[in-house]
Write a protein that binds this DNA or RNA. Structure first.
Length: 402
RNA sequence: AGAGAGGUGGCCGAGUGGUCGAAGGCGCACGCCUGGAAAGUGUGUAUACACCAAAAGUGUAUCGAGGGUUCGAAUCCCUUCCUCUCUGCCA
């Protein structure tokens, strides 16, 4: 839904200018390099006078190259700024549309539990069983920073461990990565400059709190040249995520629905371009498998152009249905970025013909905790308390929150 | 945080103003040698950008990064990042 034609016209014009300037600069520098060499030779053979005569000639060359250098720098910066404003090109499968209403449902599975009239939304359940304290978080930090207590905390830890185990069994290597990243990393995965205001920024050290593990994990591959045998790469990692969520309000931020700090287990893949879409399908199947284990009713949406992220070519969102809230909650987003991030990251590999080409990057949540937790609390509630999903019991050590 | 030392190609390492994209070694690739291998030996071995329809080729830039001095910088100066050693602090 973005008409980039004006931008692209500009890119082409600036690029042409850049190339012309570079050619001119290169020629000027070549000339002055040549003269410098001659001067050296002349000094060596004791012809100081001739050398000094040549020196005079370099003055204007130097002036010119300085000017051209500035023009070139300006053009290069301008070009980069323009390119940073152009989002990825959507895949052909991406449906046309403007808002989340235009997203295309491609899959649905799992029975929605029949709840009694007395069914409560998760924020009330959290208070009733004293497992999440939102007010306490407000006191310590502010809105959107909940405190998980007792069995609530344990359930969080259980989910993280369960997700990491599932991912590792599916071939993802577990990583622990920094939660703070530098500016270059922000640009590498495309959060900067697009989402400048959405990240917490530590000005003193010029570092950003990560909004997702995607940033540190994918940036491991910044300025990297891989060998053909290195692909595919599959990593998983748990991190807290920090988002300012400027502009959010109302019922959508109630309880766990939208937080400034939340936990997420992420999966990241680096793939050969020929195989990235097969990998994307594999990731979707993997997330399905997790949700089946948890026995949560969910659906999968193919995001329309208007809802698609800036850097993504194709995204599938997973949503869990919460009867108590009577709405779908987004719990995972799985995307193929094709070469968009690689281009910024300079993540390349030598292909079968020993040619360098950009790799494809993909990532997805497997899974984001708060809304999974909300879904569990709301869908698993009974008059006697909240049942813990069977697969989580070995991790929690208890079967009931009451 | 303070004081000192240092950051050179895939790796080790030489290089204190010109002929240095960079000696030498290791590694790697190909060839010779061999029945085959090792050893030996020869050749080659970075990236980006621009010009060219393309290949070949040519030019430019790159010795952590950015800036400066100079006709000319890996080499001198400034800023900055990182690493190591000692001291301090400390989960």
């Amino acid at each position: 839904n973005l008409d980039a034609s004006a931008l692209i016209e500009e890119v082409l014009a600036v690029d042409e200018k850049r190339r012309a300037t570079q050619t001119e600069l290169d020629n000027t520098l070549a000339e002055s390099n040549k003269i410098s060499k001659e001067i050296g030779t002349l000094y060596k053979s004791g012809k100081a006078e001739e050398a000094n005569a040549l020196k005079a000639k370099t003055g204007t060359l130097k002036e010119n190259s300085k000017k051209l250098g500035e023009v070139l720098n300006t053009a290069a910066t301008e070009l980069q700024d323009l390119l940073y404003q152009i989002p990825n090109v959507p895949n052909e499968l991406v449906p046309a549309g403007n808002t989340d209403e235009d997203n295309e449902e491609v899959f649905q599975e799992g029975a929605v539990p029949a709840l009694t009239e007395a069914a409560l939304p998760h924020w009330e359940l959290a208070a009733k069983y004293d497992i999440i304290d939102f007010e306490l978080g407000v006191k310590i930090t502010g809105a959107g920073f909940p405190v998980y207590k007792g069995k609530g905390a344990r359930l969080q830890r259980a989910l993280i461990a369960f997700f990491l185990d599932k991912n590792t069994k599916a071939g993802y290597t577990e990583m622990q990565v920094p939660h703070l990243v530098n500016e270059a990393s922000g640009y590498g995965t495309g959060q900067l400059p697009d989402k400048e205001g959405q990240m917490y920024h530590l000005e003193l050290d010029n570092l950003y709190l990560i909004p997702t593990a995607e940033v540190p994990v994918t940036n491991m591959f910044r300025d990297v040249m891989l060998n053909p045998g290195d692909l595919p790469i599959a990593y998983t990692g748990y991190t807290p995520c920090f988002r300012r969520e400027a502009g959010s309000y109302g019922a959508h931020v109630r309880g766990l629905n939208r937080l400034h700090q939340f936990d997420k287990v992420e999966i990241v893949r680096v793939e050969h371009p020929d195989k990235s879409y097969a990998a994307l399908d594999g990731m979707v199947e993997h997330v399905k498998d997790i949700l089946r284990d948890l026995k949560l009713p969910y659906r999968i949406l193919r995001l329309c152009g208007g809802d698609l992220g800036f850097t993504s070519a194709l995204t599938y969102d997973f949503e869990v249905f919460s009867t108590a809230q009577d709405r779908w909650l987004e719990i995972s987003s799985v995307s193929n970025f094709e070469a968009y991030q690689s281009n910024r990251l300079k993540l390349r590999f030598k292909d079968e013909n020993n040619k360098t080409q950009l790799a494809h990057t993909l990532n997805g949540s497997a899974l984001a905790l708060p809304r999974v937790l909300a879904g569990i609390l709301e869908n698993y509630q009974t008059p006697d308390g909240i049942k813990v999903p069977e697969v989580l019991v070995p991790y929690t050590g208890f079967e009931m929150i009451d």
